[in-house]
Simulated assay, not measured.
Amino acid sequence: MPWLWALAIAVTAAGAYWALVVSPTDWQQGETVRIMYVHVPMAWLAMGGYTGLAIVSIMSLIWRHPLADLTARELSPVGAAATALCLATGSLWGKPMWGTWWVWDARLTSVLVLFFLWLGHAALVRAFDDTERGARAGAILALVGIVNIPIVKFSVDWWNTLHQPASVTRLDAPGMHVDMLYPLLTCALGFTLLFAVVVLARTRAAVMERRVRALEMARARRLDAPQ
Rank of each mutant, 00 (worst) to 15 (best):
A225P: 04
P183A: 03
A196K: 03
T89I: 05
I149N: 03
T109K: 11
M59T: 03
H177N: 13
L45T: 05
N160R: 15
E209M: 12
L45W: 06
D130S: 07
A196C: 12
P150C: 03
V199Q: 00
Q28I: 14
V22M: 07
F154C: 09
S60V: 00
A188H: 07
V212W: 03
I146W: 05
G30T: 03
W5E: 05
T71W: 10
W158H: 06
A14D: 04
A205S: 13
A206R: 12
A225W: 03
L114T: 12
Q164G: 04
L108G: 09
A82M: 15
M97L: 15
E216M: 14
P183W: 05
W158Q: 04
A137M: 12
L143N: 02
V56C: 09
A14T: 09
T51S: 11
H163Y: 11
I58T: 10
R64Q: 11
M1D: 07
D105R: 08
V199F: 01
R34Q: 02
L108Q: 10
Q28Y: 12
W18G: 02
P24I: 09
F191N: 01
L171W: 15
R133S: 11
L124G: 07
G190V: 07
V33A: 07
C86E: 04
V40L: 10
L223G: 01
A81Q: 02
W18V: 00
M59R: 02
L215H: 09
W98K: 08
A14E: 00
M217I: 13
V113L: 14
R211E: 14
L184K: 04
A14K: 08
Y37T: 08
H177D: 14
Q28R: 13
P96I: 02
W27L: 13
I58M: 11
W104G: 12
V38S: 04
A196Y: 04
K153D: 04
G134M: 06
A84C: 06
T186V: 15
A188W: 10
A139N: 01
V144W: 10
W44I: 10
M180R: 15
A82W: 07
A54V: 06
E31P: 08
V168D: 00
W27N: 12
V103F: 09
V152I: 15
Q29D: 01
M1R: 13
V199I: 15
L20G: 02
L61E: 00
R133Y: 01
E31T: 12
C86L: 13
W159S: 09
D69K: 11
F154R: 08
A206C: 03
W44D: 01
V168S: 06
W104Y: 10
A206I: 06
A8H: 09
W63G: 08
M217D: 13
A201M: 01
K95C: 02
V197E: 00
I146L: 13
A220N: 11
